[in-house]
Design a protein around this nucleic acid. Structure first.
Length: 626
DNA sequence: GTTTCACTGG
């Protein structure tokens, strides 16, 4: 793999940097993210503020505040502002507002900084009215609102989605001779992006640049994110180049967004070259960059390269996390490589990475695919014992596994177990079980379950209806299927082409090919466009009725309508013509099918073999098929 | 000395 080779070459070109365990530990203890110990509480508030209050927890903050209030001489408002800022950074806005009020009641007055913090907290809590009141208080107290005060309020307006008012406020601040700065601009750009107004955001930046304001990485972040999330990867790439051209420093986050977007677009080669470009500039990929790449490789069917990337990141001291392993495990499982997925799970445990619900659900899915239901159930017990709660997806996977193994009663047992654990069955749960009952020929149970979901207010989806109608048709209850179709019309549920295909199929199976044909012909009037499945089902019905010329004509019509036949369409027609001993047309159809890149399926091959044995076909026919 | 803005993975 080219990329990995080049990554290795890069690595050897850079100086190695190894942190010892000792320095790591020291740096950890400098960090105030840990809680306060009892000895901390004996420190003076000044020392505590100085020791660092980053990431302070609620209880510690309240205790510290209490100490400050009781201290004599009183701390200055500046010290309180420090505490409030730290708390606001942990998003505890209500607590900040509460403590601000208490401080005031203790006779310590707000200054303009405190009021800016208060405005920010109100804005972040989407309480714009109170934020503007605080602004009024600033004016009443004779303070002059500055760029920060205005920017904070502008951000508040952007957060509630009134970006036009935010822009008006910029005009107001300019009138008041307060100069907007880069943060004011970034705030407005973000506000525009929140509203999906990417073009306006870009235009604003250009206008600002004309006025001598230089954008930074923050300016473009929301735009780039928006472009990537809306699938405009090419535009995101263009913007990345524009940023480079404008000499804006790019970081790993910026690159990762575009790399992820390229991976999602299945442009793996482009994402790899961007990754290499980033690393060549000395910007090292992080776990998120690697997770995107691993996902991209797995999606492209390059599972082993994905696993190799995991090795590569470990070697480079980029620590994989639960997402890394989940991506690989899920991908290996879906490819039927369960044992490798299980090895990855074991490696997670070895590396002290805690599996989560997604990890276990993937493994349970893998076991279900192999009909290893006992082990799947054991896995469920294992995750519960490890305090990892199964969710509705986990249960849906297991229930589907039961139904697939024709153990629908076992599926019902899980359904009840799940409900007892407080999980509410959803449309997927009910649909799966209804399908299980239908496939076991237990139509009454299927109907009852359908009734139950409707009566408790779980909305059946088109998929649910499809499953039920298919089950009814397959079990000789076409009339009831038609009744339900009627009900769907009455309830204004758009059946969609899948449902019509199922009904047409049911009609053909019930030897009502003429009814099926009428329904088929009425589809355009209903505004529904037949797809390849609808055509194939109808062709199959005509063949069954013995109307081979009509069936062949329908093949031509679907091509005219721009619907490409698939292998199933061809095989259906070929078998029908073989059955009718029309060897000539069969040969023509086979040639045509081969030209489309399809081949004879198992039942066609079986029919050919049988006919060879009976002498109904020449041996040369077989050569043509291969 | 204290206040404002942003972005990445399942």
């Amino acid at each position: 793999m080219l990329m990995i080779r080049s990554a290795k070459a890069l690595r050897s070109a850079r100086p190695r940097f190894t942190k010892t365990a000792g320095t790591l530990r020291t740096s950890l203890f400098h960090n105030s993210e840990r809680g306060f110990s009892s000895s901390d509480r004996n420190l003076s508030y000044k020392e505590r503020l100085r020791n660092g209050i980053v990431g302070i927890k609620k209880d510690d903050a309240v205790a510290l505040f209490q100490t400050m209030i009781e201290s004599r001489p009183r701390p200055t408002v500046i010290d309180f502002n420090r505490l409030f800022t730290a708390l606001a950074r942990t998003k505890q806005y209500d607590l900040v507002l509460d403590l601000c009020k208490q401080m005031e009641l203790q006779g310590i007055a707000h200054n303009i900084y405190t009021l800016s913090i208060v405005i920010n907290c109100f804005c972040r809590s989407r309480k714009l009215g109170f934020a503007f009141s605080a602004m009024g208080k600033i004016l009443k107290l004779g303070y002059e609102p500055d760029t920060v005060t205005f920017s904070t309020l502008i951000n508040g307006l952007c957060l509630v989605g009134t970006v036009s008012q935010a822009v008006e406020l910029v005009d107001r601040m300019v009138e008041m001779k307060v100069i907007p700065n880069i943060i004011t601009l970034n705030t407005i750009v973000n506000g525009l992006c929140l509203q999906g107004k990417v073009s306006e955001a870009m235009a604003l930046i250009d206008r600002m640049m004309d006025n001598g304001c230089q954008p930074d990485g923050v300016t473009y972040g929301p735009i780039l994110n928006r472009l990537c999330k809306s699938g405009n990867t090419a535009l995101a790439m263009d913007l990345l180049r524009k940023m480079e051209h404008r000499k804006i420093k790019l970081d790993v986050v910026t690159y990762s967004m575009v790399i992820d977007s390229l991976c999602k677009d299945e442009s793996l080669e482009d994402s790899l070259s961007l990754f290499n470009e980033m690393e060549t500039k000395g910007i090292k990929g992080n776990v998120i960059t690697y997770n995107s790449l691993i996902g991209g490789f797995c999606n492209a069917g390059r599972w082993d390269d994905g696993a190799q990337l995991l090795r590569d990141m470990i070697e480079r001291k980029i620590t994989p996390n639960v997402v890394t392993f989940n991506t690989l495990i899920d991908s290996f499982v879906k490819e039927g490589r369960l044992s490798e997925a299980q090895e990855l799970y074991n490696e997670m445990i070895t590396r002290d990475i805690e599996p989560n619900t997604i990890t276990y659900s993937s493994l349970i899915y893998g076991l279900c695919m192999e009909n290893r239901l006992d082990e799947a159930n054991q896995m469920l017990d294992l995750m519960v014992s490890k305090r990892c709660d199964p969710d509705i997806v986990t249960y849906n996977i297991l229930i589907k596994g039961c139904c697939k193994a024709k153990l629908v009663d076992e599926g019902m047992r899980l359904f009840r177990k799940m409900s007892m654990r407080g999980l509410v069955a959803d449309t997927v749960t009910y649909s799966t079980l209804i399908q299980g009952f239908c496939q076991s020929g237990k139509l009454n149970e299927a109907k009852e379950l359908f009734q139950e979901m409707v009566s408790i207010g779980v909305q059946p989806s088109v998929v649910t209806y499809g499953i039920l109608l298919d089950g009814l048709c397959d079990n000789g209850e076409l009339e009831m299927a038609l009744d339900i179709l009627e009900k769907m019309h009455k309830c204004k549920i758009d059946p969609g082409i899948c449902i019509y295909s199922i009904i047409i199929h049911g009609m053909c199976n019930a030897s009502k090919v003429d009814d099926a044909w009428d329904l088929f012909c009425s589809l355009p009037l209903k505004g529904v466009k037949p797809d390849v499945k609808t055509y194939t089902v109808m062709i199959s019905g005509l063949c069954k009725k013995g109307s081979l010329p009509e069936a062949s004509m329908l093949l031509r019509k679907m091509e005219e309508d721009g619907i490409a036949p698939n292998d199933c369409t061809y095989n259906t027609l070929i078998r029908a013509h073989l059955r009718g001993s029309d060897i000539c047309t069969s040969v023509e159809l086979i040639e045509e099918m081969k030209g489309c890149g399809f081949s004879a399926d198992a039942s066609t091959m079986k029919m050919v073999m049988d006919m060879l044995v009976d002498g109904g076909l020449d041996k040369s026919f077989l050569d043509m098929l291969s």
